Amino acid sequence: MTFSICVREEYTDEEGERQVRFGVAVTTRLPGVGTLCPFASESGAVATQSLVNVELGRKGVSYLDDGLAVEDALESLLNADEGRGQRQLHGVDAEGTFTFSGEECNDWYGHVEGENFTVAGNLLTGESVVDAVAAAYESDAYGEAPLAERLVDALEAGQEEGGDKREDLPVQSAALKVTTTEDREWEAYHDDLRVDASETPIADLRETFEEARRGQELVLARYDEEDGDDGDE
Protein backbone atom coordinates (compact mmCIF):
# COMPACT_ATOMS: atom_id res chain seq x y z
CA MET A 1 0.00 0.00 0.00
CA THR A 2 2.54 2.49 1.11
CA PHE A 3 6.06 3.62 1.80
CA SER A 4 6.98 6.23 4.36
CA ILE A 5 9.82 7.82 6.29
CA CYS A 6 10.08 9.25 9.82
CA VAL A 7 12.98 11.53 10.77
CA ARG A 8 14.51 13.22 13.82
CA GLU A 9 17.02 16.08 13.48
CA GLU A 10 18.69 18.04 16.27
CA TYR A 11 19.70 21.63 15.55
CA THR A 12 20.56 24.92 17.24
CA ASP A 13 18.15 27.83 16.85
CA GLU A 14 19.03 31.50 16.40
CA GLU A 15 19.16 31.95 20.17
CA GLY A 16 21.73 29.19 20.52
CA GLU A 17 19.24 26.77 22.09
CA ARG A 18 19.15 23.07 21.23
CA GLN A 19 16.00 22.09 19.36
CA VAL A 20 14.64 18.96 17.69
CA ARG A 21 12.54 18.75 14.55
CA PHE A 22 10.56 15.71 13.48
CA GLY A 23 9.26 14.81 10.04
CA VAL A 24 7.10 12.14 8.45
CA ALA A 25 6.24 11.68 4.78
CA VAL A 26 4.20 9.02 3.01
CA THR A 27 2.79 8.06 -0.38
CA THR A 28 0.51 5.31 -1.66
CA ARG A 29 -1.60 4.19 -4.63
CA LEU A 30 -4.83 5.14 -2.88
CA PRO A 31 -6.40 8.56 -2.22
CA GLY A 32 -6.23 10.41 1.09
CA VAL A 33 -3.16 8.88 2.70
CA GLY A 34 -2.55 12.08 4.67
CA THR A 35 -5.72 11.44 6.71
CA LEU A 36 -4.65 7.95 7.79
CA CYS A 37 -0.93 7.37 8.08
CA PRO A 38 1.35 10.27 9.14
CA PHE A 39 1.33 11.67 12.67
CA ALA A 40 3.71 14.08 14.36
CA SER A 41 4.03 16.39 17.36
CA GLU A 42 6.88 18.19 19.06
CA SER A 43 7.62 14.85 20.78
CA GLY A 44 8.09 12.65 17.72
CA ALA A 45 6.76 11.27 14.42
CA VAL A 46 4.88 8.04 13.68
CA ALA A 47 3.65 6.31 10.51
CA THR A 48 0.99 3.58 10.59
CA GLN A 49 0.31 1.57 7.43
CA SER A 50 -0.36 -1.76 5.68
CA LEU A 51 -3.87 -2.68 6.95
CA VAL A 52 -4.07 0.72 8.63
CA ASN A 53 -5.05 1.13 12.25
CA VAL A 54 -5.24 4.90 12.59
CA GLU A 55 -5.33 4.67 16.38
CA LEU A 56 -1.77 3.35 16.39
CA GLY A 57 -0.65 6.69 15.00
CA ARG A 58 -2.95 8.89 17.06
CA LYS A 59 -2.31 7.13 20.34
CA GLY A 60 1.36 6.64 19.51
CA VAL A 61 2.00 10.36 19.27
CA SER A 62 -0.18 10.99 22.33
CA TYR A 63 1.92 8.52 24.33
CA LEU A 64 5.09 10.26 23.17
CA ASP A 65 3.62 13.56 24.37
CA ASP A 66 3.03 11.90 27.74
CA GLY A 67 6.73 11.08 27.98
CA LEU A 68 6.87 7.43 26.91
CA ALA A 69 9.82 6.30 24.81
CA VAL A 70 8.88 5.53 21.22
CA GLU A 71 9.76 1.83 21.56
CA ASP A 72 7.63 1.41 24.69
CA ALA A 73 4.76 3.47 23.29
CA LEU A 74 4.43 1.69 19.95
CA GLU A 75 5.18 -1.80 21.22
CA SER A 76 2.49 -1.48 23.89
CA LEU A 77 -0.05 -0.43 21.27
CA LEU A 78 0.86 -3.34 19.01
CA ASN A 79 0.60 -5.79 21.90
CA ALA A 80 -3.01 -4.72 22.40
CA ASP A 81 -3.84 -4.91 18.67
CA GLU A 82 -5.46 -8.15 17.46
CA GLY A 83 -4.48 -7.25 13.89
CA ARG A 84 -0.78 -6.87 14.75
CA GLY A 85 0.33 -9.31 12.05
CA GLN A 86 -1.12 -7.08 9.31
CA ARG A 87 0.35 -3.80 10.57
CA GLN A 88 3.39 -1.76 9.79
CA LEU A 89 4.31 0.82 12.40
CA HIS A 90 7.44 2.90 12.77
CA GLY A 91 8.58 6.16 14.25
CA VAL A 92 11.10 8.33 16.08
CA ASP A 93 11.23 10.39 19.25
CA ALA A 94 13.89 12.65 20.74
CA GLU A 95 16.19 9.76 21.57
CA GLY A 96 15.18 6.57 19.78
CA THR A 97 13.59 4.79 16.85
CA PHE A 98 11.13 1.92 16.39
CA THR A 99 10.20 -0.28 13.42
CA PHE A 100 7.71 -3.12 13.04
CA SER A 101 6.43 -5.07 10.04
CA GLY A 102 3.89 -7.82 10.73
CA GLU A 103 4.32 -11.21 9.11
CA GLU A 104 0.97 -10.92 7.30
CA CYS A 105 1.85 -7.74 5.38
CA ASN A 106 1.80 -8.04 1.59
CA ASP A 107 5.03 -8.51 -0.38
CA TRP A 108 7.29 -6.85 -0.84
CA TYR A 109 7.28 -5.47 2.67
CA GLY A 110 9.96 -4.51 5.13
CA HIS A 111 11.73 -1.65 6.84
CA VAL A 112 15.06 0.11 7.34
CA GLU A 113 16.21 1.73 10.59
CA GLY A 114 18.95 4.34 10.82
CA GLU A 115 20.41 6.32 13.69
CA ASN A 116 17.79 9.07 13.42
CA PHE A 117 15.26 7.81 10.87
CA THR A 118 13.02 4.89 9.93
CA VAL A 119 11.61 3.81 6.55
CA ALA A 120 8.95 1.17 5.90
CA GLY A 121 6.88 -0.05 2.97
CA ASN A 122 4.59 -2.79 1.74
CA LEU A 123 3.17 -3.88 -1.61
CA LEU A 124 6.35 -2.50 -3.17
CA THR A 125 8.23 -3.54 -6.28
CA GLY A 126 11.11 -4.63 -4.05
CA GLU A 127 13.45 -3.94 -1.16
CA SER A 128 15.33 -1.39 -3.23
CA VAL A 129 12.44 1.07 -2.75
CA VAL A 130 12.96 1.49 0.99
CA ASP A 131 16.73 1.43 0.47
CA ALA A 132 16.43 4.28 -2.03
CA VAL A 133 14.29 6.34 0.35
CA ALA A 134 16.82 5.84 3.14
CA ALA A 135 19.81 6.61 0.93
CA ALA A 136 18.21 9.79 -0.42
CA TYR A 137 17.54 11.08 3.07
CA GLU A 138 20.96 10.11 4.42
CA SER A 139 22.74 11.78 1.52
CA ASP A 140 21.32 15.16 2.54
CA ALA A 141 20.51 14.75 6.23
CA TYR A 142 20.73 18.09 8.02
CA GLY A 143 21.06 19.75 4.63
CA GLU A 144 20.41 23.42 3.97
CA ALA A 145 17.02 22.77 2.37
CA PRO A 146 13.98 22.66 4.69
CA LEU A 147 13.23 19.19 6.05
CA ALA A 148 9.89 19.18 4.22
CA GLU A 149 11.67 19.55 0.89
CA ARG A 150 14.16 16.82 1.74
CA LEU A 151 11.31 14.49 2.68
CA VAL A 152 9.80 15.03 -0.77
CA ASP A 153 13.22 14.17 -2.24
CA ALA A 154 13.21 10.91 -0.29
CA LEU A 155 9.72 9.96 -1.49
CA GLU A 156 10.74 10.78 -5.04
CA ALA A 157 13.74 8.46 -4.80
CA GLY A 158 11.51 5.59 -3.70
CA GLN A 159 9.02 6.26 -6.46
CA GLU A 160 11.77 6.31 -9.08
CA GLU A 161 12.96 2.93 -7.78
CA GLY A 162 9.54 1.41 -8.46
CA GLY A 163 7.38 2.41 -5.49
CA ASP A 164 3.99 0.78 -4.97
CA LYS A 165 3.67 -2.14 -7.40
CA ARG A 166 -0.09 -1.80 -8.07
CA GLU A 167 0.15 -0.03 -11.41
CA ASP A 168 -3.55 -0.68 -12.09
CA LEU A 169 -4.43 1.91 -9.43
CA PRO A 170 -3.74 5.34 -10.96
CA VAL A 171 -5.27 7.52 -8.21
CA GLN A 172 -2.53 8.14 -5.64
CA SER A 173 -1.75 10.45 -2.74
CA ALA A 174 1.13 11.81 -0.67
CA ALA A 175 1.57 13.84 2.49
CA LEU A 176 4.15 15.25 4.87
CA LYS A 177 4.28 16.76 8.35
CA VAL A 178 7.18 18.54 10.05
CA THR A 179 7.14 19.68 13.68
CA THR A 180 9.70 21.25 16.01
CA THR A 181 10.33 21.93 19.68
CA GLU A 182 11.25 25.50 18.75
CA ASP A 183 8.80 28.26 19.68
CA ARG A 184 8.57 30.13 16.38
CA GLU A 185 6.80 33.39 15.68
CA TRP A 186 5.64 32.03 12.30
CA GLU A 187 4.87 28.38 11.62
CA ALA A 188 6.18 27.31 8.23
CA TYR A 189 3.31 27.02 5.76
CA HIS A 190 5.05 24.13 4.02
CA ASP A 191 5.33 21.89 7.09
CA ASP A 192 1.89 20.23 6.82
CA LEU A 193 0.96 19.37 3.23
CA ARG A 194 -1.29 16.85 1.50
CA VAL A 195 -2.08 15.80 -2.06
CA ASP A 196 -5.20 13.66 -1.67
CA ALA A 197 -5.95 12.42 -5.20
CA SER A 198 -3.59 12.62 -8.16
CA GLU A 199 -1.80 10.47 -10.70
CA THR A 200 1.42 12.38 -9.91
CA PRO A 201 1.26 12.88 -6.12
CA ILE A 202 4.94 13.41 -5.39
CA ALA A 203 5.43 15.93 -8.18
CA ASP A 204 2.27 17.68 -6.96
CA LEU A 205 3.50 17.59 -3.37
CA ARG A 206 6.74 19.26 -4.46
CA GLU A 207 4.81 21.95 -6.33
CA THR A 208 2.59 22.49 -3.30
CA PHE A 209 5.67 22.82 -1.10
CA GLU A 210 7.22 25.38 -3.44
CA GLU A 211 4.02 27.42 -3.64
CA ALA A 212 3.53 27.31 0.12
CA ARG A 213 7.09 28.55 0.67
CA ARG A 214 6.61 31.31 -1.90
CA GLY A 215 3.32 32.29 -0.28
CA GLN A 216 4.93 32.60 3.12
CA GLU A 217 7.72 34.74 1.72
CA LEU A 218 5.12 37.08 0.22
CA VAL A 219 3.18 37.29 3.47
CA LEU A 220 6.28 38.03 5.53
CA ALA A 221 7.40 40.66 3.04
CA ARG A 222 3.95 42.27 3.24
CA TYR A 223 4.07 42.42 7.04
CA ASP A 224 7.61 43.80 6.97
CA GLU A 225 6.40 46.58 4.66
CA GLU A 226 3.46 47.37 6.94
CA ASP A 227 5.72 47.50 9.99
CA GLY A 228 8.00 49.89 8.12
CA ASP A 229 5.07 52.10 7.17
CA ASP A 230 4.01 52.29 10.84
CA GLY A 231 7.37 53.82 11.64
CA ASP A 232 7.18 56.58 8.99
CA GLU A 233 6.59 60.17 10.11
Rank of each mutant, 00 (worst) to 15 (best):
A94F: 01
A188M: 02
L218A: 14
N116A: 14
A40G: 11
E17I: 02
E15D: 15
E42K: 12
D140I: 05
D66R: 13
N116P: 00
A188H: 07
E226V: 13
E14T: 14
S41D: 08
G23D: 11
Q172V: 02
Y11P: 05
E113C: 12
E113Y: 01
Q49D: 10
P38T: 10
D196K: 03
G126K: 09
E104A: 15
D229N: 09
E127T: 02
V26E: 01
V171N: 12
L123P: 01
D204N: 12
L124Q: 08
G126C: 09
T179V: 09
G32D: 11
A221L: 05
E167V: 13
P201A: 00
Y109S: 15
L56D: 05
S41P: 02
E199S: 13
A148C: 06
D81W: 03
S50K: 03
D164W: 04
E211Y: 03
D168H: 12
L89F: 03
D191W: 00
E82V: 10
A212I: 06
G32N: 11
T48H: 04
G102Y: 02
E217T: 13
L155S: 13
F3G: 13
E149R: 15
A73M: 07
T200N: 14
D93Y: 05
E82Y: 00
Q216F: 04
S50H: 09
E144F: 03
G16Y: 00
R29T: 10
A175Q: 06
E138A: 15
G60N: 07
K59E: 15
V92G: 00
E71F: 02
L51M: 14
